[in-house]
Amino acid sequence: MASTDTQTPEKPVRADKARNRERILVAAREAFGTRGIETQMDDVAAGAGVGVGTVYRHFPTKEALMGELVRQKFELILEHAREGLEEDGEPFEVFAAVLRRNCETTAGDAAAQHALMGAGDEVWAYARPTVDELHVVIQVLIDRAQAAGAMRPDFSSADMPMVMCGVSASMAHGGWDWRRHLEILLDGLRTSPR
């Protein structure tokens, strides 16, 4: 008796569905960047040019939508950190370059700033696997800088959320120079501040 395949092949995502999802994410970035976490799903739907039901079909809650924005941002931040692992150079400067690059990425995305400062546990749950991997990669960069004697020994990747939240707060405050804030933090991490 011939065996039958009981698995149903996965349907490819329809092109219009994928386009709608991308339009929703673009509109959400803009809406959260402008209004912060006060943004409503109706605001996102209007910005995307779709009905609010379409938004809810893709993202059943506002937290799910914010979670996807946070996850995407951390995927990019993780990519920068992985690139740092491949770079030659003085280990502290490699770490600092990765941090600067990631801060520039965050500075250009007000939605990410709001998420970093105000997202709850439900939002962070969507990005948790990416954030966990990011902690591992950043710790390797930190370990290298500490082994070279260039970074204070009591710093770890567990401190990075505090660092990024502080710099994000400077970004959100219109009159503060977040780059100066970052350089002051980096000097505080060196074993011999410049």
Rank of each mutant, 00 (worst) to 15 (best):
Gly120Ala: 07
Val131Leu: 10
Val94Gln: 00
Ile138Phe: 06
Ala150Ile: 00
Asp121Tyr: 15
Ile142Phe: 04
Ala112Leu: 10
Ile142Leu: 05
Leu116Trp: 09
Val136Lys: 08
Gly84Cys: 10
Glu79His: 13
Leu134Pro: 01
His135Lys: 09
Gln72Ser: 13
Leu76Val: 15
Ala115Gln: 09
His80Arg: 15
Val94Arg: 08
Gly149Leu: 06
Phe95Ile: 02
Glu86Pro: 01
Gln113Trp: 03
Arg101Ser: 10
Ile138His: 08
Pro91Phe: 09
Leu76Lys: 12
Arg71Phe: 04
Ala150Trp: 05
Arg82Ala: 05
His114Gly: 04
Arg101Glu: 13
Ala125Pro: 06
Asp132Ile: 01
Thr105Ile: 12
Met66Asp: 05
Lys62Ser: 04
Gly67Phe: 02
Glu86Arg: 13
Arg71Asp: 10
Ala112Trp: 06
Pro91Arg: 02
Gly120Lys: 00
Val137Ala: 03
Gly84His: 07
Gln72Ile: 13
Val94His: 01
Ile142Lys: 00
Arg71Trp: 08
Gly118Ile: 00
Gln139Glu: 12
His114Trp: 12
Gly84Thr: 08
Gln146Tyr: 04
Thr61Phe: 06
Leu141Met: 04
Ala150Gly: 13
Arg128Ala: 15
Phe92Leu: 09
Glu87Thr: 15
Leu116Cys: 09
Leu69Ala: 01
Gly67Asp: 04
Arg128Glu: 14
Ala150Lys: 06
Arg100Gln: 11
Ala150Met: 09
Gln113Thr: 10
Glu79Ser: 11
Asp121Ala: 14
Arg144Val: 01
Leu85Lys: 06
Ala148Pro: 11
Trp124Asn: 04
Ala110Gln: 13
Val123Gln: 02
Ala112Phe: 08
Leu116Asn: 10
Ala81Lys: 04
Gly149Tyr: 05
Leu65Lys: 03
Ala148Met: 10
Ile138Ala: 09
Ala111Ser: 11
Ala125Trp: 06
Gln139Ser: 03
Val123Pro: 01
His114Lys: 06
Tyr126Gln: 13
Asp88Ile: 09
Val123His: 01
Ala81Met: 05
Arg101Leu: 07
Arg71Ile: 02
Ala64Arg: 08
Ile77Ser: 05
Lys73Val: 12
Asp132Leu: 07
Leu65Gly: 02
Leu65Phe: 08
Ala64Asn: 02
Ala64Lys: 10
Phe95Glu: 06
Leu134Lys: 04
Asp109Met: 02
Gly84Trp: 06
Glu79Asp: 15
Leu99Lys: 03
Glu83Pro: 03
Arg100Cys: 11
Glu93Gln: 12
Asn102Gln: 11
Asp121Leu: 15
Met66Arg: 01
Pro60Tyr: 01
Trp124Arg: 11
Leu141Glu: 01
Leu99Asp: 04
Ala127Asn: 04
Leu85Pro: 08
Gly108Ala: 12
Val98Asn: 00
Ala81Thr: 07
Met66Gly: 13
Thr105Trp: 02
Tyr126Pro: 05
Gly108Glu: 02
Ala148Val: 14
Pro129Ala: 01
His135Ser: 10
Val136Asp: 14
Arg100Tyr: 13
Lys62Arg: 14
Leu99Thr: 11
Glu93Pro: 06
Leu85Glu: 15
Gln113His: 04
Glu68Ala: 01
Val70His: 12
Leu134Trp: 09
His114Asn: 12
Gln72Val: 11
Met117Cys: 13
Ala107Thr: 00
Leu78Ala: 02
Ala119Arg: 05
Leu69Trp: 00
